[in-house]
């Protein structure tokens, strides 16, 4: 199997490593870099558990993305939103609003929220529901997640320091 040497910037840190051509970004994150905060839920882009941010703004399914195509891109995972142990407002809102049950969809939901709020800082409830489509939660019925996104939007708008997408500058 042919390999390529790639450099990925994940959560602000550069990693240079060899990947087989058919390596997905999800495999590279989890298996090569041992960054297991991004989850495998279906491998077909339907559950959203593997959602990561590209260049601090756009969410993608890392299971449907080749690692080799991500050369030079800034990738943010849920772990990258936390700065010096300080929760990002989105994370804080998820904790406070009971938006987390089993937690397996949570990393993807949080990253999806980050992308949603980066594009639309004041979403309506309908915008939030539409914005979270593609990420399946089997535990919460989405109710507490939607409330958390509303709260996160308020928290971010009230704070001058933190942008929704968070990590990569």
């Amino acid at each position: 199997m042919k390999t390529r040497s790639i450099t990925l910037c994940v959560n602000g840190r550069d990693y240079t490593f060899e990947v087989p051509h058919n390596r997905t970004l999800l495999q590279a994150l989890r298996d090569d870099l041992k960054l297991t905060d991004t989850k495998y839920g279906c491998g077909s882009g339907e559950c959203g558990g593997c959602t990561v941010l590209i260049n601090g703004k756009d969410n993608i399914n890392s299971c449907l993305t080749l690692a080799a195509e991500m050369e030079g891109k800034h990738i943010t995972t849920v772990g990258g939103l936390t700065k010096n142990g300080q929760l990002h407002p989105i994370q804080q809102a998820f904790v406070e609003l009971g938006a987390i049950q089993c937690g397996f969809c949570t990393p993807g939901m949080v990253m999806k929220t980050a992308s949603l709020l980066a594009h639309n800082p004041n979403p309506s409830e309908d915008d939030i529901r539409r914005g979270l489509e593609g990420n399946i939660c089997r535990c919460t019925g989405y109710e507490n997640i939607i409330r958390a996104v509303q709260k996160a939007s308020q928290m971010i708008n009230a704070s001058a320091t933190q942008c929704a997408g968070g990590a990569c500058s």
């Binding site: 991004t38 849920v78 994370q91 904790v95 987390i100 937690g103 949570t106 990393p107 949080v110």
Partner: peptide
């Protein structure tokens, strides 16, 4: 907040 919420929301669980 739930006792395990922070570890789950940061991907550390």
């Amino acid at each position: 907040p739930k006792v395990d919420a922070k570890e789950k929301v940061t991907g550390q669980a």
